[in-house]
Protein backbone atom coordinates (compact mmCIF):
# COMPACT_ATOMS: atom_id res chain seq x y z
CA UNK A 1 0.00 0.00 0.00
CA UNK A 2 1.12 3.54 -0.67
CA UNK A 3 1.89 5.76 2.26
CA UNK A 4 2.70 9.42 2.46
CA UNK A 5 5.11 10.46 5.16
CA UNK A 6 5.32 14.16 5.82
CA UNK A 7 8.23 15.43 7.88
CA UNK A 8 9.24 18.82 9.15
CA UNK A 9 13.01 18.83 9.38
CA UNK A 10 15.70 21.25 10.38
CA UNK A 11 17.25 22.70 7.27
CA UNK A 12 20.73 21.36 8.07
CA UNK A 13 23.39 19.62 5.97
CA UNK A 14 23.00 15.89 5.70
CA UNK A 15 19.34 15.70 6.68
CA UNK A 16 18.23 14.30 3.35
CA UNK A 17 20.88 11.57 3.41
CA UNK A 18 19.95 10.57 6.94
CA UNK A 19 16.30 10.22 6.02
CA UNK A 20 16.83 8.51 2.69
CA UNK A 21 19.43 6.25 4.31
CA UNK A 22 16.96 5.04 6.90
CA UNK A 23 14.52 3.95 4.24
CA UNK A 24 17.11 2.10 2.19
CA UNK A 25 18.64 0.47 5.27
CA UNK A 26 15.29 -1.01 6.18
CA UNK A 27 14.82 -2.21 2.62
CA UNK A 28 12.24 0.28 1.34
CA UNK A 29 12.13 2.00 -1.99
CA UNK A 30 11.21 5.63 -1.88
CA UNK A 31 8.70 6.18 -4.65
CA UNK A 32 8.96 9.92 -4.59
CA UNK A 33 10.44 12.54 -2.37
CA UNK A 34 9.90 16.29 -2.40
CA UNK A 35 11.74 18.77 -0.23
CA UNK A 36 11.39 22.49 0.11
CA UNK A 37 11.52 25.23 2.69
CA UNK A 38 8.42 26.06 4.74
CA UNK A 39 7.20 29.43 5.98
CA UNK A 40 10.16 29.25 8.39
CA UNK A 41 13.35 29.29 6.35
CA UNK A 42 15.23 27.14 8.88
CA UNK A 43 12.64 24.38 8.55
CA UNK A 44 11.92 22.28 5.47
CA UNK A 45 9.08 19.96 4.68
CA UNK A 46 9.80 16.58 3.17
CA UNK A 47 7.03 14.60 1.59
CA UNK A 48 7.96 10.99 1.02
CA UNK A 49 5.87 8.39 -0.74
CA UNK A 50 6.63 4.72 -0.10
CA UNK A 51 4.90 1.54 -1.06
CA UNK A 52 4.99 -0.88 1.90
CA UNK A 53 2.90 -2.79 4.39
CA UNK A 54 1.78 -0.90 7.51
CA UNK A 55 3.80 -2.80 10.08
CA UNK A 56 7.31 -2.25 8.70
CA UNK A 57 6.46 1.36 7.88
CA UNK A 58 5.72 1.98 11.53
CA UNK A 59 9.24 0.84 12.36
CA UNK A 60 10.67 3.32 9.85
CA UNK A 61 8.59 6.23 11.02
CA UNK A 62 9.64 5.52 14.59
CA UNK A 63 13.25 5.42 13.51
CA UNK A 64 12.78 8.65 11.54
CA UNK A 65 11.37 10.26 14.65
CA UNK A 66 14.62 9.49 16.41
CA UNK A 67 16.70 11.49 13.95
CA UNK A 68 17.83 14.58 15.78
CA UNK A 69 17.02 16.90 12.86
CA UNK A 70 13.48 15.60 12.39
CA UNK A 71 11.16 17.94 14.24
CA UNK A 72 7.76 16.49 13.44
CA UNK A 73 6.55 13.59 11.46
CA UNK A 74 3.21 12.29 10.36
CA UNK A 75 1.71 9.77 8.09
CA UNK A 76 -0.98 11.19 5.84
CA UNK A 77 -3.82 9.00 4.72
CA UNK A 78 -4.70 9.37 1.08
CA UNK A 79 -8.34 10.18 1.86
CA UNK A 80 -7.56 12.67 4.60
CA UNK A 81 -5.04 14.75 2.74
CA UNK A 82 -4.75 16.79 -0.42
CA UNK A 83 -1.91 15.83 -2.70
CA UNK A 84 -0.46 17.50 -5.73
CA UNK A 85 2.27 16.84 -8.22
CA UNK A 86 3.65 19.03 -10.94
CA UNK A 87 4.85 17.84 -14.28
CA UNK A 88 6.43 19.47 -17.29
CA UNK A 89 6.01 17.73 -20.62
CA UNK A 90 7.85 18.60 -23.81
CA UNK A 91 5.81 17.34 -26.75
CA UNK A 92 6.36 17.29 -30.49
CA UNK A 93 3.95 19.92 -31.84
CA UNK A 94 4.14 20.49 -35.58
CA UNK A 95 1.72 23.17 -36.82
CA UNK A 96 -0.84 20.56 -37.88
CA UNK A 97 -1.15 19.06 -34.37
CA UNK A 98 -0.74 22.17 -32.30
CA UNK A 99 -4.42 23.04 -31.97
CA UNK A 100 -5.27 19.54 -30.70
CA UNK A 101 -2.55 19.68 -28.10
CA UNK A 102 -3.66 23.09 -26.89
CA UNK A 103 -7.18 21.76 -26.58
CA UNK A 104 -6.01 18.91 -24.37
CA UNK A 105 -3.97 21.40 -22.35
CA UNK A 106 -7.07 23.54 -21.83
CA UNK A 107 -9.14 20.63 -20.62
CA UNK A 108 -6.50 19.81 -18.02
CA UNK A 109 -5.90 23.45 -17.20
CA UNK A 110 -2.29 23.00 -18.18
CA UNK A 111 -0.10 26.01 -18.89
CA UNK A 112 2.00 26.40 -21.94
CA UNK A 113 5.34 27.48 -20.61
CA UNK A 114 7.47 27.28 -23.75
CA UNK A 115 6.79 27.06 -27.46
CA UNK A 116 9.00 26.80 -30.50
CA UNK A 117 8.55 25.88 -34.12
CA UNK A 118 7.89 22.19 -33.55
CA UNK A 119 7.43 21.65 -29.83
CA UNK A 120 5.47 22.80 -26.81
CA UNK A 121 6.25 22.53 -23.10
CA UNK A 122 3.21 22.07 -20.90
CA UNK A 123 3.04 22.48 -17.18
CA UNK A 124 0.36 20.54 -15.30
CA UNK A 125 -0.40 20.33 -11.62
CA UNK A 126 -2.79 17.95 -10.03
CA UNK A 127 -3.31 14.61 -8.51
CA UNK A 128 -1.41 11.58 -9.61
CA UNK A 129 -4.36 10.29 -11.66
CA UNK A 130 -4.84 13.58 -13.46
CA UNK A 131 -1.22 13.67 -14.43
CA UNK A 132 -1.27 10.06 -15.53
CA UNK A 133 -4.31 10.86 -17.67
CA UNK A 134 -2.80 13.78 -19.53
CA UNK A 135 0.41 11.88 -20.00
CA UNK A 136 -1.50 9.04 -21.66
CA UNK A 137 -3.34 11.43 -23.93
CA UNK A 138 -0.13 13.09 -25.03
CA UNK A 139 1.93 9.98 -25.66
CA UNK A 140 0.63 9.55 -29.24
CA UNK A 141 1.92 13.02 -30.16
CA UNK A 142 5.42 12.08 -29.11
CA UNK A 143 6.75 13.09 -25.71
CA UNK A 144 10.29 14.43 -26.04
CA UNK A 145 10.99 14.96 -22.37
CA UNK A 146 9.12 14.60 -19.13
CA UNK A 147 9.90 15.91 -15.64
CA UNK A 148 7.68 15.14 -12.68
CA UNK A 149 8.04 16.32 -9.11
CA UNK A 150 7.28 14.04 -6.22
CA UNK A 151 4.02 14.41 -4.38
CA UNK A 152 3.55 17.14 -1.88
CA UNK A 153 0.69 16.84 0.56
CA UNK A 154 -1.08 18.52 3.45
CA UNK A 155 -3.76 17.28 5.81
CA UNK A 156 -7.30 18.31 4.88
CA UNK A 157 -9.25 20.74 7.03
CA UNK A 158 -7.97 23.06 9.70
CA UNK A 159 -5.80 20.59 11.55
CA UNK A 160 -2.07 20.85 11.08
CA UNK A 161 -0.36 18.07 9.23
CA UNK A 162 1.84 17.07 12.15
CA UNK A 163 -0.52 16.29 14.96
Amino acid sequence: MKHIVSALVENKPGVLVRIAGLFSRRGFNIESLAVGPTEHPEISRMTIVVDVADQPLEQVTKQLHKLINVIKLSELRMDESVQRELVMIKIKAPAAKRAEIIEIADIFRANIVDVSRDMIVLEVTGTESKIDAIENLLIPYGIIEFARTGKIALARGSKETEQ
Partner: peptide
Protein backbone atom coordinates in the same frame (compact mmCIF):
# COMPACT_ATOMS: atom_id res chain seq x y z
CA UNK B 1 33.56 9.71 7.83
CA UNK B 2 30.19 11.30 8.53
CA UNK B 3 28.91 9.40 5.50
CA UNK B 4 30.63 6.13 6.40
CA UNK B 5 29.32 6.16 9.95
CA UNK B 6 25.81 7.35 9.18
CA UNK B 7 24.12 4.02 9.98
CA UNK B 8 26.03 3.53 13.24
CA UNK B 9 25.83 6.88 14.99
CA UNK B 10 23.08 8.42 17.04
CA UNK B 11 24.03 11.72 15.45
CA UNK B 12 26.98 13.33 13.72
CA UNK B 13 28.34 16.72 12.77
CA UNK B 14 30.70 18.04 10.15
CA UNK B 15 31.89 21.38 11.47
CA UNK B 16 31.55 24.18 8.94
Amino acid sequence: ITGITLPVVKHSYLLK
